Simulated assay, not measured.
Amino acid sequence: MIGKNRKALNLCLIIANLAVLAILGFVLFQRHNTKYKQVAKAEKTEQVANSKSSSSEKAKEDDETQLKKGSNHSIEESDYAYDVTAVNNTIRGKSDDVKGKVVFLTFDDGIDPTLTPQVMNILKEYGVHATFFHIGYTITPENGDILKRQITEGHAIANHSLSHNFNLLYPGRVPNQSQIISEVDQTMANFKAILGKDFKTRIFRYPGSHMSWQGLESTDQALANKGIQWIDWNMLCGDAEPLSVRPTTSESMMAYMDGSQKYFPETTVKVVLMHDTAGKELTVQTLPQIIEYFKNQGYTFGVLE
């Protein structure tokens, strides 16, 4: 009987010890599990914080290069963007709204998928910026990356009609106001299709220039009513002049450009006409010299807004 009682007692002790071990194991498991959850939670919190920080940095980076809402250039470009009306009045001798030596390099008739990027590469190399007057029919998805690059690299974009067709715009050398306005509107729509609804340019250059046509006053007013200002130039490299006088070397192009100033009111504010379309390879070749020409004279480079 005593042996049986002893065996029963030993069995009870074993069961009790197992129960204690089970309880200790459960407690240790719970403590480990809680610690694991705390570590995981801390890691997740850190990941979220890092993600937010990265997103914030990315947003900041985007802000520095994104289109300035309601304009034709990026936010960063505002430091060297000049009001087109003030520039226009200055180069026409009607005011001195723009002070100092400022030059505006302007390129007409793009986008050309070959020459326009070459022009942009040179501008980037020399650290200067330009205003591009694009023809609306060239504003296509295929050229969209070039257009976006112009914004992100600090250039300005302007309107140069949809067709650049003199017979449509000035039939019989008489301005067709409805056609001109329609083409300006359609070109703006093409810009927005690529750059978004926040893009707007208030700058227009008449194909052939304002000075080439009579009777544009009512069309000027119609454009002004839409918040659009036309502008010509007061220097040109001669790349669109008749073949009999068009420069054929970089040296003759520089001489032509320098001499072109005599036809316009004297001012230290210069708007230079050039072209970035097929057949204007000489302009691209001479562009570094043109940039150096103005740098050596102490000019700063601006864009039109």
Score class of each variant (00 low, 15 high):
residue 228 I to H: 10
residue 92 R to F: 01
residue 26 F to I: 11
residue 15 I to M: 13
residue 247 P to S: 02
residue 192 K to Y: 06
residue 263 Y to Q: 11
residue 192 K to N: 07
residue 251 E to K: 13
residue 41 K to Y: 13
residue 142 E to I: 03
residue 214 Q to H: 06
residue 272 V to N: 04
residue 76 E to T: 14
residue 266 E to P: 00
residue 152 T to R: 12
residue 75 I to A: 11
residue 136 G to P: 14
residue 224 A to S: 13
residue 77 E to D: 07
residue 235 M to T: 12
residue 82 Y to M: 07
residue 240 A to D: 09
residue 246 R to H: 02
residue 175 P to I: 01
residue 305 E to F: 04
residue 304 L to I: 13
residue 85 T to W: 05
residue 241 E to T: 10
residue 182 S to E: 07
residue 58 K to I: 15
residue 57 E to K: 15
residue 245 V to L: 01
residue 99 K to E: 09
residue 194 I to V: 15
residue 118 Q to F: 05
residue 150 Q to D: 08
residue 177 Q to I: 03
residue 81 A to E: 06
residue 28 L to K: 13
residue 19 A to V: 14
residue 68 K to E: 11
residue 161 S to C: 08
residue 273 L to K: 05
residue 14 I to C: 13
residue 62 D to N: 14
residue 227 G to K: 10
residue 83 D to Y: 10
residue 259 G to W: 05
residue 154 G to A: 04
residue 26 F to A: 12
residue 114 T to E: 13
residue 263 Y to C: 03
residue 157 I to Y: 01
residue 157 I to P: 00
residue 147 L to V: 14
residue 77 E to V: 09
residue 224 A to C: 04
residue 95 S to T: 15
residue 77 E to K: 06
residue 2 I to R: 14
residue 170 Y to P: 00
residue 285 Q to H: 14
residue 121 N to K: 15
residue 159 N to I: 12
residue 71 S to A: 08
residue 263 Y to K: 11
residue 271 V to E: 04
residue 233 W to A: 08
residue 195 L to W: 12
residue 139 I to K: 03
residue 67 L to I: 07
residue 225 N to Y: 05
residue 31 R to S: 12
residue 279 G to S: 10
residue 80 Y to W: 11
residue 270 K to M: 06
residue 200 K to V: 06
residue 185 D to K: 15
residue 84 V to G: 05
residue 74 S to Y: 05
residue 116 T to F: 02
residue 132 F to G: 01
residue 184 V to I: 11
residue 223 L to R: 08
residue 150 Q to I: 01
residue 156 A to N: 02
residue 48 V to W: 00
residue 69 K to F: 04
residue 66 Q to A: 15
residue 85 T to N: 12
residue 83 D to T: 12
residue 179 Q to I: 02
residue 26 F to T: 12
residue 169 L to V: 07
residue 215 G to F: 06
residue 39 V to I: 15
residue 186 Q to I: 07
residue 58 K to C: 07
residue 13 L to K: 13
residue 215 G to A: 08
residue 231 I to K: 03
residue 129 H to T: 08
residue 131 T to Y: 09
residue 167 N to W: 02
residue 19 A to L: 14
residue 86 A to C: 11
residue 73 H to M: 02
residue 196 G to I: 08
residue 168 L to T: 12
residue 75 I to Q: 10
residue 161 S to A: 13
residue 110 G to M: 03
residue 72 N to S: 15
residue 146 I to N: 05
residue 136 G to A: 10
residue 261 Q to H: 07
residue 279 G to V: 08
residue 281 E to L: 00
residue 197 K to E: 15
residue 17 N to H: 06
